[in-house]
Design a protein around this nucleic acid. Structure first.
Lengths: 198, 198, 198, 198
DNA sequence: TATGAATGAGTTTTCATTCAT
DNA sequence: CATGAATGAAAACTCATTCAT
């Protein structure tokens, strides 16, 4: 009689723990020891499910990007005005700030630290490209539907993405100085105004 | 007869070396050994001028911010149209991309890694605030001079700063996917359009 | 109804697998994991049949020595000239080189690694003694039958054994530099000439 | 004022310690910790002089081979009868048994364990080749001077070397069962008899 | 019988930092 | 001022072994 497969559960448990500790410390400052303890496992136990620290990080990255990419795909199928859809998207991100902040804390650290591991670099790049493409699709629709000026959708998408990432970065660096919601909303509004026909 | 003070020279020499190596590797992957060798000194020699690795990092950060902040202050004293001044500012940054990229490669890694060291955190925050204030001053002037809509200057400045930082981040993560110049210019143009009276 | 006893079969299966992997890697570099997988079992399964890694090694050692010792005993019962018998013995070993090489690859590593485990040490010693005694019996017969000079049979046997082990060692260390067949044959011939009456 | 260079001294000190502990335990059973403590240094101190455990082993190997190779070269320049020279060589080795045993304990383990590290493998092979060439030179001289039968010098040298290595191996595996001096002498005598004209 | 998840001690190696000279 | 030897505390990762199922 096969025991129930604990593998998925354990992996989730470990990623959950990793998320939690990576949120507060830099990658090099988090030891496998810590991750294991936080997950309620032994070091060897963690290695049973992930072959290396980097593999944990990569899994984390993928896990965090998933729901956001899903939402972008959903919005691409909507007929609502593009400005509204983009506003919605960023409003939702802002609303989920509490949940997302932690994710992005890790995510952004990753963007900035990919240097050494090429495999990780590829993951990061793939996810970055997916974000950009998702946004670009919306903007392209906006242009096609006559809502936006005929801009380069890819550049505009990258700019929006950059704005978001940059503000998240600044906010993480100094949470008290940056009011994430207001500023992101303000920045997105500026860009959308710039995109629309005068 | 006192020997000429080599202190300043040595410090610069060390920071120069640190810059060079930090540009290509994460902070934890760069050893004091490496910095010392690159600077043409011994490990102990480096410690004569900087009490710790973190102190080197902080000094680096300050050094890199200086010329940019100077330029912002200069521009604040100009009577030229604000749109032009901001365009100039970012055009200059883009033009100096080659020189600045390395600086920012380090700078951004710092933003993302401040976690543990409070002193370092303060440096990073102070510099971030200075950038924002510099940009906010220009925007406020733009509003006062009637060039811009009556936006919250601080938010807009932060958005511009975020755009810049975020694009730099994305570009560092994937230089081939991001055309820094085009995208930054496009993003800044969008925001400026959004700022101006229709 | 008792299931057929798979024990012997499983043990053979495990030893076979161990042989295979030990042939190419040092003992410390082979994990029980690897042995188990090669044998098509789980780790726990291997432990069902062998109490420890060392026990596997000891069993391997014994298994490899058996056929050679058998052949020596057979030859001791033969009336053929001793020179011929010894030549035959080594010729057979050389002929079976392909099959034996792997066995001895493991065997010799064992000789060199007995250090820590006394039980293992005893196995190794017992087998070494059996080889030497087998050869000594032949040589003693040669002396008694007047074929050889009145040498110390035990010393001569040990020398022959040493020659064999040493060449195997050298050959394993550098297969391209050592022509095992030629050299062993040449060496044995030299010794036999030295043994015989002028 | 430069301090006296302790580097050579320290390296010798470390190799000395390594020798001592490798003599009694297999390579994997000796930790850098142990080597360091035996040498009276910290772990980091050992790493200051040797980049890895393998590097220590390689250095050890070279150091141990040196004097023996020197002696072989010396003997090649002598006009004494070759039988005498070879007897002398092995007699000296036997006489220095106490000093050499430890060296060879390490040496032989190396022969048997080269598997993983190619660099180490090359060292081992080079030294093996040097031994064989040294002996072959002597034997070739013996043939040329008419003392020996026209044998293949390289094969005979390898056989002598194999005899020596093999006996050392057997002796290390079971010091009580093998009388190294007697047996090596007996074996060498047999081979020399076989080499000489009847 | 057999599985494979889990353990945790142990290994090599790195590195910021100190300090005698 | 400057050197570079030395320290020692970590870190990532491995692996023989156990045991509930």
């Amino acid at each position: 009689m096969p025991r129930p497969d604990v593998s998925a559960e354990r992996k989730a448990q470990i990623l959950q723990a990793a998320q939690q500790v990576f949120a507060r410390q830099s990658f090099h400052d988090v030891s496998m020891q810590t991750i294991a303890q936080t997950a309620g496992l032994s070091v060897g136990g963690v290695y049973w499910y992930f072959k290396s620290k980097d593999e944990i990080i990569a899994a984390l990255l993928a896990r965090n990007a998933e729901p956001i990419l899903d939402r972008l795909r959903q919005l691409a199928d909507s007929d609502a005005p593009t400005t509204a859809r983009l506003k919605t998207f960023f409003r939702e991100i802002i609303a989920a700030e509490d949940q997302i902040a932690v994710l992005y804390s890790t995510g952004i650290k990753l963007y900035a630290m990919t240097g050494a591991n090429p495999q990780l670099q590829n993951s990061v790049r793939a996810i970055g490209a997916a974000y950009r493409d998702g946004l670009a699709t919306l903007i392209r629709q906006g242009v096609e539907r006559g809502e936006f000026q005929p801009v380069n959708a890819s550049d505009a998408a990258m700019a929006l993405l950059g704005l978001y990432e940059g503000l998240m970065l600044l906010w993480l660096a100094d949470p008290q100085a940056v009011q994430f919601e207001n500023t992101l909303q303000a920045g997105v509004m500026l860009m959308l105004k710039g995109l629309m026909h005068p």
